[in-house]
Nucleic acid binder design. Structure first.
Lengths: 129, 129
DNA sequence: GTAACTGCAAATCCTTTGCTATGGA
DNA sequence: TCCATAGCAAAGGATTTGCAGTTAC
């Protein structure tokens, strides 16, 4: 695992991720950080997001089109809207029972798990009218 | 939703998906179908996989690098190896409790959900020695 | 006959990588 | 000084799309 030196850019990215619950994409992080460091490049954003995920300081959430990132590294579940692709946090306790019962039925050693609910969010449901 | 006419190519793809538990990628489906229809194109495979997923006859599993497909459309969970990226079925009952308890905490209407366990499979664990 | 489907090739788009210069310890 | 990091631009790779000919119904 690569050693991390300090960098202003990475600090700003992590700060942004930790102060939003919007689960931004790399592109969205890029646009936000540009307000602070107008010369930052998209490649730098991608590199730092990877490093943060690798070092356990952020989570990557695989979306339909592209990945989303989350500064909340506590185990928690997500809800993704089929229509607008927005990612919502689900306010519930991760299920210990789920992991335990899976542990006996998995051909290997579990490191973590991901639970994603798919459906239509309230905003898109009301837009249908 | 698009109307489906019969096509030999799509039939072969679905048949393959229903008779394997290997969760093939589009590329792997392509290589397999080529044995039967040597002229099939990768684009046709992608188009048909999308149609099958759209019509509920197959599931798409988002992998780290690319998508995998599953002809088993019954709700079930998966285990993905961090090392070899192989996708395994997890032999356990989907948790009704999970969906119910999520239902109360989600800002929308749940259509389905996905549970993926990540870790290292037994094969890769023994390869480490 | 009309609409769906195919094969082919080009295009798209997210993400990664090579390179050179700069910055942190 | 030494190695990580930045910015830029080009490359990579999975997936989609446009088109002209074919097939299903």
């Amino acid at each position: 695992m690569a050693k991390l030196n300090y960098s202003r850019q990475r600090e700003a990215i992590l700060d942004f991720l930790c102060h939003t619950t919007s689960h931004p994409t790399a592109e969205e992080v890029y646009r936000h950080i540009q307000d602070i460091y107008p010369n930052i490049s998209l490649g730098t954003v991608y590199r730092n997001l990877s490093l943060l995920v690798e070092h356990g300081q952020a989570l990557k959430i695989q979306g339909e089109d592209c990945d989303h990132f989350d500064g909340n590294t506590e185990p928690h579940y997500h809800f993704v809207c089929d229509a607008c692709h927005h990612v919502y946090d689900v306010d519930m306790e991760p299920s210990d029972q789920l992991i335990q019962s899976a542990g006996h039925n998995v051909p290997g050693k579990i490191r973590t798990h991901s639970v994603i609910f798919y459906g239509t969010c309230d905003t898109c449901l009301s837009d249908k009218n």
